[in-house]
Amino acid sequence: MPEEATTSGEEDVLRAPLVLEYPFKRTTGPVIGAFLTALREGRFIGIEDDQGKVLCPPVEYDPASGASLTKLVPVGSEGEVLFWSWNQSVRDGQPLDHPFAWAMVKLDGADTPMMHAVDAPHEVMVTGLRVRAKFAEERIGSMDDLLCFEPVS
């Protein structure tokens, strides 16, 4: 973001940090819960729509019509980068602590991509790159169980 300090120095005012911190609790429902359960098992699942298209990560509804979806199906742990961007200045809470690529990764067996991190050098990143999921060693059933994707060597 462009920086342009145009603060008027007309009068000095008080200032203090305000920290908003909370461990929000989210109930998952059966579909998101199944996806997170699969992550805990080191796998991926998706959900099939009426046309047989597989959405991964799965959602409870057809994204176009809102109709309920129920058929959960397995999805592979390798896939392809559809498009990507480079994250040079990493912020707290992001999947990796060093620069990485954000990518839309379409897993084998899925028809829609998911957004996640790819741990690869900037110069390696290219659309069409084959990547593989890297899971955490200790998994508890959360998005943290999936650390990132890595190039398939």
Binding site: R26, T27, T28, G29, V31, I32, V59, E60, Y61
Partner: peptide
């Protein structure tokens, strides 16, 4: 409502 997601 432990049985549903937010959109649910």
């Amino acid at each position: 409502r432990g049985d549903v997601s937010l959109p649910g």
